[in-house]
Amino acid sequence: MARVRTQLTSLKPHPALLRASERIGLIGTAAWCAIGLATREPRPITARLPLTLDLLQTLEDAGILARCSSDTPNAQRALYDPISWLNRDHGTPAGALQRALEQALQLRVKDDRSSSEALWSLLVDADSEAYLLHLLQRHQMANLDPNPLIASIRREWAPYSLGRRRYLAWAGLRHAAACLLRENFDATAAYSMLETQIQRRGRWLFAKQAANEIAEDDYCFVPDSNWRHPLLLEIFLERVMPMGRLFWSKPPPPKPRHG
């Protein structure tokens, strides 16, 4: 087995595949890897389906694949997400494509630190928003459009690690759930309470953080060891930035401001 792995490692990806990887960059190549894995791993590609669909559209726009219905002949189908596609020809046999993509990704990682950090931020946003939506559903508050709420909260918790964002969501939902009962199941009032509590608790955390009164992993909710990562997150932690638990306890770098 070790000999086979060494032989595969020594093979270089086809030039057509490398050119395709260069077109879509590190994030696109990582997404391409994750989508390939989705045909044999029954896990979500990312924590949020809208992000998965955006990445799939990016790959289609770049000529990497073509989205199609699941009953299309030769279609590739994800085992978890409701997506299917046809691969374009990039000079690589189907059986060698995944390994070639992993090698192409390693080349992108060496050359593009800023995109590695952008992918980190993208994954943290997706997981924190997915966790918030999970809590809203658990507390029967998912009947309103959550997107305006998410857009507002995204600004509030941008300075925090994923683990602390999860904590803020949990702490805010406790107050929002009480508000829901108190206000005769008025979800609008509950959403407003949730946003207010995340702001207040966030300011409290920020003050504690600035005064060095709390450790990096205090007030930090981390999934248990049995939690199965979405595929793109697994690729990120194994091949892009192998940071382990720091993914949950360390804030991602600030996003660059434009204009």
Score class of each variant (00 low, 15 high):
residue 165 R to L: 03
residue 179 C to G: 09
residue 92 T to N: 00
residue 172 G to K: 03
residue 90 H to N: 09
residue 255 K to E: 09
residue 13 P to V: 04
residue 116 S to H: 07
residue 195 E to D: 11
residue 251 P to R: 06
residue 101 L to A: 01
residue 172 G to I: 05
residue 121 S to F: 09
residue 129 E to W: 06
residue 134 H to I: 02
residue 40 R to L: 10
residue 252 P to L: 03
residue 74 N to I: 14
residue 113 R to L: 15
residue 43 R to F: 06
residue 153 I to A: 00
residue 77 R to L: 13
residue 3 R to G: 13
residue 112 D to H: 13
residue 144 L to K: 06
residue 50 P to W: 08
residue 14 H to E: 11
residue 214 I to L: 06
residue 20 A to D: 06
residue 225 S to H: 09
residue 48 R to N: 07
residue 35 I to F: 14
residue 91 G to Y: 04
residue 198 I to C: 01
residue 230 P to E: 06
residue 219 Y to A: 09
residue 36 G to Q: 14
residue 195 E to G: 02
residue 207 A to E: 11
residue 60 E to A: 02
residue 59 L to Y: 04
residue 185 F to D: 09
residue 18 L to Q: 04
residue 139 H to Y: 12
residue 195 E to K: 02
residue 234 E to R: 15
residue 65 L to F: 07
residue 73 P to Q: 02
residue 174 R to W: 04
residue 72 T to S: 11
residue 70 S to P: 00
residue 186 D to C: 12
residue 52 T to L: 02
residue 167 Y to L: 01
residue 118 A to E: 08
residue 130 A to P: 13
residue 137 Q to D: 09
residue 6 T to L: 13
residue 109 V to C: 05
residue 188 T to N: 15
residue 131 Y to E: 04
residue 22 E to C: 06
residue 150 I to S: 02
residue 19 R to H: 13
residue 240 V to Q: 11
residue 165 R to M: 05
residue 180 L to F: 14
residue 235 I to F: 04
residue 153 I to K: 00
residue 130 A to M: 02
residue 49 L to K: 11
residue 17 L to T: 08
residue 58 T to E: 12
residue 34 A to T: 11
residue 220 C to H: 06
residue 21 S to M: 03
residue 215 A to L: 11
residue 63 G to H: 03
residue 51 L to Y: 04
residue 68 C to I: 14
residue 183 E to L: 08
residue 220 C to T: 11
residue 207 A to P: 01
residue 104 A to Q: 03
residue 151 A to W: 02
residue 101 L to R: 10
residue 250 K to A: 14
residue 237 L to T: 00
residue 10 S to K: 14
residue 142 A to V: 05
residue 20 A to N: 01
residue 56 L to I: 10
residue 87 N to T: 12
residue 133 L to F: 08
residue 206 F to H: 13
residue 15 P to L: 12
residue 187 A to T: 09
residue 222 V to N: 07
residue 180 L to P: 00
residue 131 Y to D: 10
residue 213 E to T: 12
residue 169 A to E: 01
residue 79 L to G: 05
residue 74 N to L: 11
residue 143 N to G: 12
residue 132 L to E: 00
residue 220 C to E: 09
residue 4 V to W: 15
residue 241 M to R: 14
residue 254 P to T: 05
residue 257 R to N: 14
residue 79 L to A: 05
residue 247 F to Y: 09
residue 220 C to M: 06
residue 105 L to D: 05
residue 49 L to A: 05
residue 37 L to Q: 15
residue 35 I to T: 10
residue 164 R to G: 02
residue 83 I to Q: 15
residue 98 Q to L: 15
residue 193 M to A: 03
residue 193 M to L: 10
residue 88 R to E: 15
residue 177 A to G: 04
residue 213 E to Q: 15
residue 236 F to Q: 06
residue 165 R to D: 01
residue 232 L to I: 08
residue 13 P to Q: 00
residue 120 W to K: 08
residue 73 P to V: 00
residue 242 P to F: 12
residue 187 A to E: 12
residue 256 P to E: 09
residue 199 Q to F: 00
residue 78 A to P: 04
residue 189 A to R: 14
residue 148 P to L: 00
residue 251 P to G: 08
residue 230 P to V: 04
residue 194 L to S: 01
residue 256 P to H: 01
residue 98 Q to M: 09
residue 244 G to R: 11
residue 124 V to Q: 13
residue 247 F to S: 00
residue 215 A to N: 10
residue 94 A to R: 14
residue 23 R to A: 15
residue 245 R to D: 15
residue 64 I to E: 07
residue 65 L to P: 10
residue 175 H to G: 03
residue 197 Q to S: 08
residue 20 A to I: 08
residue 165 R to C: 07
